[in-house]
Design a protein around this nucleic acid. Sequence first.
DNA 1: CTGAAAGCGCTTACAG
DNA 2: CTGAAAGCGCTTACAG
Lengths: 326, 326
Amino acid sequence: MRATIADVARQAGVSKTTVSRVLNTRTEVDPSTAARVREVIDALAYVPSSGAVGLARGSSRTIAMLTPSLTWPWMGEVLQGVADTVEAAGYGLLLFSCNRGADSVRHFTSQVSARAFDGLLVIEPENTLDTIAEMYRRGLPVVLIDDRGRHPAFPSVATTNREGGASAARHLLESGRTRPLVLTGRRDFGCVRDRLAGFSEILPTDLVIDGEFTEESGRHGVERAFAQGRSFDCVFAHNDLIAAGALRALREAGRDVPDDIAVVGFDDIPIARHTEPPLTTVRQPMRQMGETAARLLLAGLGGKTLSTEPVVLRTELVVRRSAPRP
Amino acid sequence: MRATIADVARQAGVSKTTVSRVLNTRTEVDPSTAARVREVIDALAYVPSSGAVGLARGSSRTIAMLTPSLTWPWMGEVLQGVADTVEAAGYGLLLFSCNRGADSVRHFTSQVSARAFDGLLVIEPENTLDTIAEMYRRGLPVVLIDDRGRHPAFPSVATTNREGGASAARHLLESGRTRPLVLTGRRDFGCVRDRLAGFSEILPTDLVIDGEFTEESGRHGVERAFAQGRSFDCVFAHNDLIAAGALRALREAGRDVPDDIAVVGFDDIPIARHTEPPLTTVRQPMRQMGETAARLLLAGLGGKTLSTEPVVLRTELVVRRSAPRP
DNA sequence: CTGAAAGCGCTTACAG
DNA sequence: CTGAAAGCGCTTACAG
């Protein structure tokens, strides 16, 4: 049978109150009493039941992370940043993926009501921002990761999408490229608008093809541009999957990258270093975003009031062979 | 203030016992009473506190997942399979990554003692098998994902590593290749020995270079083979990262893939379809492994006794351009 | 079919 | 510095 606080108290010849006090390292305990209690704790390998502590204290020392998918290319990095930070603070990390649609959302919502965790880190599943905002308003501490340019009414972590787009344009311009093809992700994403705006400021273009954040979309984008007889000397893809698709379509069309056409992506996912040629891309610091969001949330749980102004982390241009330095 | 079972009981004019009974859908409640209670529950948006239920019942309806890293290329798929299955069963998923070394292990161990979860899914962090086995012996339900050929003394899910190696060899042999270079991962992994044994049975070779499961290791392996003046017409890499490194080294050496040298990898991670040429590889069904392990564990929690005989899932050869069909 | 009471394993005023 | 008692929000014999 597992030891409880009552066992420890009995064997140490003190009350449960005293044991609780030494566990929570309050000062008002006689040193020799405390030492005796600690001995018994060690001897019994006693660890307080997290459930009981949570009930008594009204908090679970657990944080939840909500994601639309766990298989997105950059999700592992975010998760690792979150997990490391949360663990180091002695908190537990409860993972919710909304992969099963409405059912998943319901499951998650009921866990919120059940007070299964103290705070929430979220990468927004499609169309759930209102639900999340409502939870925040009702008192659940929330930090959003990757606001997609939407600037919600609660704390969030974002990256410099606009400056990221601009840095891609500057790099291409410095390499002597002047006629870009831009392949975007979904236009209703704020980050897409920001990346485009930053890019266009430096390197204006009317050759913009809207698409999805997929390889296929990148392939189709390039094919369509060729079919329309448009000419371009570089491609700015709104993420690395689109860029990978573009690379493939360019190779199939017999164009050399980067000699004929340079390609720049966005994100710097693991695939980026394995394409041929390896991809120049605007790196988003995903792990750091996870860490930052977790640290913010933990500070919030510690009583600090969090600003709803997004914390913005810097993107960084990573130069590889698809668009080398001039 | 949040509603409790006492609030529901008061407003419905019944005892907490009765409310508890309708919550847990026992039969011994008068239909009209039950209906009245349910109305109040809805009106108050009452959801039982998971902490209190857990304490009273002595179980948390939560499963833990322990991993060495969250950024490994196939981890997202495993995690998704686990999360979907666990969620669908109404359980919570507590995530532990041992990324911070000994500190992480300690944090995890204390959570075990704190009874923070009912069962454990584990992808073994380096050198923790004994610790895990000990937890299993003390009564914690455990299912291991990817036994690395070690056949532990508790339930596990594995893949057909030996047959996977054999299928790679058969494919190469059918394509007329007879002089393979094999690039292995760490030899102390059982899966490496199994893949090698299966391969060698069909296509014996003395050109085996041991390495790590990394891109660099693949590059070095090919370079070393060339430096030794060895000739080969195909490569069997023990995972896709090694294969990606091999592709790079072959290209730099001016060899055409697959015309001069065919390449087969193992795993089928996302990168595999983005190399040049795209990689033929032995697919491990990672998501299915996650699902299977989770289902096993849930069955165990449901009272079923689990066999310690590994559940073995089939690998599948995925043919792409690096080693096309004959 | 229903309820009073004890219990799960802790914490926390309160009193001394 | 220490302890008895109440309380956190549930479940579960037990009795009726």
